[in-house]
Amino acid sequence: MAVDPLIELHDVNKYYGDLHVLKDINLTVGRGEVVVVIGPSGSGKSTLCRTVNRLETIQSGTIRLDGQPLPEEGKALAGLRAEVGMVFQAFNLFAHKTVLQNVSLAQMKVRSRKRPEADRRSRELLERVGLAEHADKLPAQLSGGQQQRVAIARALAMDPKALLFDEPTSALDPEMITEVLEVMQQLAREGMTMVVVTHEMGFARSAANRVVFMDGGRIVEDRTPEDFFSNPESDRAKDFLSKILKH
């Protein structure tokens, strides 16, 4: 197990009304680790991802980030969220701002950087995701893959301790999936701590340190990708893999 835990979930339970969506979740993500969460729709994997920065509240259990329990509300919670970047399935770039402004906005509002400094950092990051020449466009003028790369740059601009990816490629055309995955691979190699909810098994195999398989709100398996893909223990995981790896 991880030597230096960064994200710790302990006995986490979440309900939507009567629906029990997360059941006694225990998960530790070490610093620098890449954990890929897979599972069928409705298994709770996106919800799990969203509880880590408290976009979803939980009913019981504890979540710690770098040893600190998640604050309930207010400034302390905002401060914590700045430490955990998030990349959404629907990109969620600010529609009324240019690409550059998208990446700079929170740097100025949250990190109190001056505009020139924030913009310099933004351009650096846009360069890194290969979009420097699109800095002055509006999000709607970019392709999905480009938008998602901007979203990654926007999250990186806060210098987060960890990044959460909530199905980052699920809304993309196959061609664009690759360009986004390449950026993510690069981050993984650089040692960024990442929790990635995805259906991209190739990414799980090549970039993940661990694969977490969820079903019905529970973590069913939590193993290395080699073990998981070549020799799944549970019937549920075998069934899942046989369906998705057939094609």
Partner: peptide, 14 residues
């Protein structure tokens, strides 16, 4: 869209 606010909050904006 809800995601706009979520994105802002996830970046640590109050």
């Amino acid at each position: 869209p809800r995601g706009q606010g979520e994105a802002a909050r996830s970046l640590g904006m109050t």
